[in-house]
Design a protein around this nucleic acid. Structure first.
Lengths: 229, 229
DNA sequence: ATACTATAAACTGTATACAGTATACAGCGA
DNA sequence: TCGCTGTATACTGTATACAGTTTATAGTAT
């Protein structure tokens, strides 16, 4: 029992979040939520005052966000929320599609009993949600599909990079996600079936195509936005 | 003339390197050179004294290196040169192979006159170096192959990530690079020919296989190192 | 010798300070 | 009205300071 306590408390220190961590999460969230628009200035004193801390933690957070492509920091100038051109968005989508395809390919080639069980559970739950037309739940399962798939590929560098690319485009993909939950789920089912029958190439193709499809819709919406504005 | 002057000087400011930049490059070089071994502590005051600056620029450099996977920074503890397990190295190599393959595939599908000319020049120069048995020059061309190929894929996110993965494994791949310059070049020629005949799939396969081959040799050397140590 | 403890030294996280650089704005001339 | 210039303000890059935590050292008990 003393032991279990020790274990339970062992990572209190590890898990302690520095100001840095908390500000990082809060600011990232705020940007994704749209509180700060692309191109908007993010000054260190401004954020420091907002969060009630000194400039140092803010600086580090901004640099971290820079390394993830979420903000841009020109030399000696204020950080800005990253601005993407349509071409860049196309490139991200193209790459995401290939990487997610790769991820499915890896997953199909590395099935373990655990993974299969997880996939099967997800399949059942998702299908049930479709029957019940429970869209919020389905959205959740759609999210889970991506993270489960990604981790089933058993390549942590691929996982890391996909998650960075996904975050970079979260605000974009959110634009169409809600509308196509059911369509997305059906595509996910196809990918899962390919994976579970160990068909690596098919899994790769289907998953890549799935991302490309959403991407195309995103680009369409962006085009309309620009046309309308 | 006044105009050309203006243009020439326009980016003096842009190019001015902060302490940050210079320390970043110097430290990264030092780590790659092996001045700091994997697992070695990198304390802020120590580096600050070494470079003759305060801790702030050092901190930022260390965080940047962390984001590239070159150092690890546990909370409230000193930064250390990143330590990779064999499994992680295998995963990096696996991913690099796929991404370099993807890069070749993109390049083969996006040939422009400029690109073709660059590739042809590189081919001629490299082949000449082989004839003359000029190994140093050939090594140079081998390097150029990778960067030229990467940029010909016309996806800057792929370029960025490949370059990060390459840097992460530079110290490893250097172990075998010298010995196989000529073999590497021959493999590069195969890839280039596939690209220039727009054979996307072949280009992808050959380039991925090329990286995997080097990777296998790297892993062999590592295995021997561990066995001998 | 080896493990444990107390203490000292070193280090990180955060705050504050200041010089030099960029930005915003008011006043001026066309 | 528009563009320029000068000046004030705000901001970044870097240095220094200090509290609290980690690491190294020396001493003690076994």
């Amino acid at each position: 029992m003393a032991d279990s306590k020790t274990v339970a408390w062992a990572d209190v220190g590890e898990k302690h979040q520095s100001l840095n961590d908390r500000i990082y999460k809060a600011l990232r969230e705020a940007i994704f939520r749209g509180d700060y628009k692309p191109g908007e200035r993010l000054t260190e004193p401004g954020l420091a005052k907002l969060f009630g801390v000194s400039r140092n933690p803010i600086r580090e957070v901004l640099r971290k966000l820079q390394s993830e492509g979420i903000v841009e920091i020109p030399p000696r100038k204020s950080a800005r929320v990253a601005v993407y051109t349509v071409e860049e968005i196309e490139e991200i989508i193209e790459l995401r599609a290939e990487l997610e395809g790769l991820s499915a390919q890896f997953a199909a080639g590395r099935l373990t009993d655990d993974t299969i069980e997880n996939f099967q559970d997800l399949l059942d739950a998702g299908n049930k949600a479709v029957e019940e037309n429970d869209i919020p739940k389905l959205s959740e399962y759609n999210e889970e599909f991506h993270s489960l798939l990604s981790s089933s590929g058993k390549n942590r560098f691929l996982v890391d990079y996909i998650s960075i690319l996904r975050e970079r485009t979260l605000w974009l993909f959110d634009k169409v996600k809600g509308d196509r939950s059911i369509v997305s789920w059906k595509e996910h089912v196809g990918v899962l079936e390919a994976i579970m029958s160990s068909d690596r190439k098919l899994a790769a193709l289907l998953n890549a195509r799935h991302v490309r499809k959403i991407g195309a819709e995103v680009l369409k919406v962006i085009g309309e936005d620009n046309g309308a504005g």
